[in-house]
């Protein structure tokens, strides 16, 4: 961007465009082997979700399309000419957390939404359930026989890894809370948070009372 338009980002457009192109390419490569999500996205064709990160400041746009090699267009719109169906804004971490967590409520998330919340909910569901058919991808690359046996191998490895991670997490958590007693258990922690909340509200009330007394 040049100094003839001082309000815009100072990042060279070549770099920001490269980042968006890479993101778009990764998403569409994943969708190539996920016909379910692709056809669901095609039903949303033309609708645009604007994602505005306030910290760090940048905005990207996601548009569902129904062309053969592209299901989702990711772009920047430097001159803000497009009219998004839904505009999501908030700190980047809050938006990322919203995209990853199961709940779709925006309460206390630090994220605000303008426009249609239906598109937001649809996009959130679709991106979360993106089911990539690795076996089909491998079959196309290596032929059915090799692809299938490699996919089976990957599946069993992935299952084993997931099991180890989950049981590992459980064991570490039990060891820290029950054996070392270095961390509180979850119910204790929740009860502590509850007490902190009550204390905060009591302090607020007290502050109001003192302010009223000082006035009178």
């Amino acid at each position: 961007m040049d100094d003839n338009a001082p309000n815009q980002s100072t990042l060279d457009p070549t770099l920001s465009t490269a980042a968006l192109a890479a993101l778009e390419s990764a998403i569409n490569a994943a969708l190539k082997y996920d016909p379910g999500t692709r056809s669901a996205l095609a039903k949303l064709a033309g609708q645009i979700l604007a994602v505005e990160s306030t910290q760090p400041p940048f905005t990207i746009y996601l548009q569902a399309t129904k062309t053969e090699n592209q299901s989702l267009r990711v772009f920047a719109d430097p001159d803000q000419q497009c009219s998004p169906t839904t505009h999501l804004s908030g700190p980047f971490l809050a938006i990322a957390a919203l995209a990853l967590k199961d709940s779709s409520t925006l309460a206390n998330s630090g994220v605000t939404v303008m426009g249609s919340t239906a598109l937001l909910s649809d996009m959130q569901t679709l991106l979360k359930q993106m089911d990539i058919d690795w076996e089909d991808a491998l079959n196309q690359l290596m032929g059915d026989l090799l692809g299938h046996s490699l996919a089976n191998r990957i599946r069993s490895l992935a299952g084993w890894a997931q099991h180890r991670i989950l049981s590992g997490q459980r064991l570490v958590s039990e060891y820290l809370t029950e054996e070392l007693k270095s961390l509180p258990a979850k119910p204790e922690l929740e009860s502590f948070y509850q007490e902190v909340d009550e204390l905060r509200m009591s302090v607020d009330r007290l502050e109001q009372r003192i302010a009223r007394i000082i006035k009178t």
Partner: peptide
């Protein structure tokens, strides 16, 4: 290959729509 990024940015600035 950077000419593809220059052209991509041109499309983004164009604001062309359906």
């Amino acid at each position: 290959g950077v000419h593809r990024l220059w052209k991509r940015f041109t499309i983004e600035v164009s604001g062309v729509r359906a």
